[in-house]
Simulated assay, not measured.
Amino acid sequence: MGKGYRQGRLGEEIRKIVSELLLRELKDPGLSSMISVTAVEVTSDGSYATVYLSVLSTSGAENEQEEQQKALDAMNRAKGFIRNEIGRQVKLRHTPELIFKIDHSMEYGRHISKIIRDLDIDHEDEE
């Protein structure tokens, strides 16, 4: 297997654990909106894990960035607890330091789809 096989497996395990903690354990007022873990990237030496979060805004686009920032702040407050749970469940010699980031790929995908729709290209057969 390639070099990233272990990092990929570890990232997937961390994603599952953080998702489960978000669903059942974490009770923070900053986590009032719907949050999902879209991906986890682990560095090659396993010292850092970047956790990408997707925040579904419940109040509309005008407060979207504010809700994203609240979610990031809440996750950073719970970082020690989350890291402890990862270390307990995965049995690692060194638990990676967690870095939380907002995943903007959904917004980017909607933007690209809008651009394609705005082109107004007919999809007729050119025979």
Rank of each mutant, 00 (worst) to 15 (best):
M75A: 02
R77C: 05
G46F: 03
R117W: 08
E67Y: 00
L98A: 02
R93M: 01
R77H: 08
G8P: 03
Y48C: 09
L26F: 03
D125P: 11
I82G: 01
R24L: 04
R6H: 12
E62N: 13
T50Q: 05
S19E: 00
F81H: 06
L98H: 06
D125H: 14
Y48A: 01
G46T: 01
S113M: 13
K79A: 09
E97G: 04
T58G: 14
E126W: 14
L56H: 11
V40D: 10
G11F: 02
R93V: 07
D45L: 03
E62L: 12
T43F: 02
F100A: 00
S32D: 13
L72H: 04
T38C: 01
G4H: 10
L72C: 03
H104I: 13
I82K: 03
Q89F: 01
G109T: 14
R6K: 14
A71S: 11
E66W: 09
S105Y: 07
K3F: 12
I112H: 11
D118P: 06
V51C: 05
V37Q: 06
S33G: 05
V51S: 01
A49G: 11
T38A: 02
V42I: 01
L53K: 04
Y5H: 13
G109Q: 14
R24Y: 11
H94K: 15
E107S: 14
S105E: 11
E64P: 03
K91W: 11
R9I: 06
G46R: 00
S33H: 10
V51A: 06
L53A: 03
I115G: 09
K114Y: 05
S44H: 12
K3S: 13
A39G: 13
K101T: 06
H111K: 15
S36R: 07
Q68V: 05
K16R: 15
G109F: 12
L92P: 09
E41A: 07
R9W: 00
G2L: 06
E62Y: 12
I115R: 09
L23V: 10
R93F: 07
L31P: 03
S113I: 07
M75N: 07
E64M: 12
R15W: 03
E127Q: 13
S54R: 11
